[in-house]
Design a protein around this nucleic acid. Structure first.
Lengths: 183, 183
DNA sequence: GACCTTTGTGCAACTAGTTGCACAACCGGC
DNA sequence: GCCGGTTGTGCAACTAGTTGCACAAAGGTC
């Protein structure tokens, strides 16, 4: 139940059309809450009928025409309510850890290459985050908003750091496993 | 598409009934792939008709009667295939980070208490993992299976460590925010 | 032996997320 | 002046996961 709130947040940061939102979900917000454009359009429709957002230019043209949305007071109130409400952490699901556990039973044959690939992906993501940090959060004088957003980015950086370290360690362990042949 | 494989792994480690599986999912495997008993029963049914598992005692009694399953060769082969197959990391979704981002826009009112609660939950989980580590993986001579399983547990420990550190830091930042009143 | 709790299995309905596709408008080239 | 790519919106069908409930059997208890 978080996609509508992710959209409200994005729209409060800047009113946008469906496609612009999609692009922004591919970047910043999507780093911890991804969504496809189909999901976004569907949700925009719901949010509009619920009275949380409205189209920006009063004219509402036909299909294929750009349509920008802005958040209404009711939408902001709903987002504030949701943000403050207590929520239990949702269980994490991680396929790679599951495969690792399965590999302990059926053998590590073939998984190593994918571990390397993941390591590479996480390294890239980490580099991207660090680039954003350098660009958007230079040291010194940050506003309250910036501090909070920086905090969120730090979470991303630390998580990617964790994964690169863990994968590196896993590959080292593999090298020491009996029956290990490839370099 | 990972629940059936999680179940196959668990059954290979030890043949079990639906309820036993549910309990084990509340512990070890469920730490990175949770499932309710309803999901598990449904999936057991599918796995059986697909010929990947079978009931242990040839007698298959009625509803309310315990039914244990074991993995058939075809099931083991399927698990090995899945484990070795390359998979893209699925996008992570994290509500707390999303709320943090929303808080940057609509204000931090109310979120702090929940941050403390999450910190407490993650500390407990971390303690539990460390307990398991001490009990199940004493230093020195580990088999290949143990090494892999230990690696997975380490991931859990490191992730919980990350969260406790990040939440601690977040709460510190909150204390420095202008307009912050409560202790 | 009627009642209650625990253990165990399971269906049905719903919600969230994914995949595949369709289609309209605009913009450039040739 | 039509043809192909890009931008933009959207529906439909499917898959995965959650929630709520039902029901059978076994064991204790008074």
């Amino acid at each position: 139940m978080s996609l509508p709130h992710a959209i409200l947040t994005a729209l409060l940061e800047k009113p946008s059309s469906g496609l612009e939102l999609t692009r922004r979900f591919d970047k910043s917000i999507g780093y911890f809450w991804s969504a496809t454009h189909q999901q976004i359009y569907r949700e925009l429709g719901k949010l509009e009928t619920e009275g949380f957002i409205r189209t920006l230019p009063p004219a509402q043209p036909a299909r294929g025409q750009k349509k920008s949305y802005e958040v209404l007071p009711a939408g902001r109130a709903e987002l504030a309510r949701w943000t403050a409400a207590s929520q239990d952490p949702r269980p994490h699901r991680d396929t790679l850890l599951l495969r690792m556990r399965a590999a302990a039973v059926v053998g590590t044959e073939g998984i190593e290459a994918d571990l390397r690939r993941h390591l590479d992906l996480h390294r890239r993501q980490l580099a991207e985050y660090e680039e954003i940090e350098k660009r958007d959060f230079p040291p010194g004088r940050e506003s309250s908003q910036d501090r909070l957003r920086h905090l969120v980015l730090r979470a991303g950086i630390d998580l990617e750091t964790f994964w690169t370290q863990w994968l590196t360690r896993a590959l080292e362990e593999f090298a020491e496993l009996p029956g290990h042949e490839r370099a």
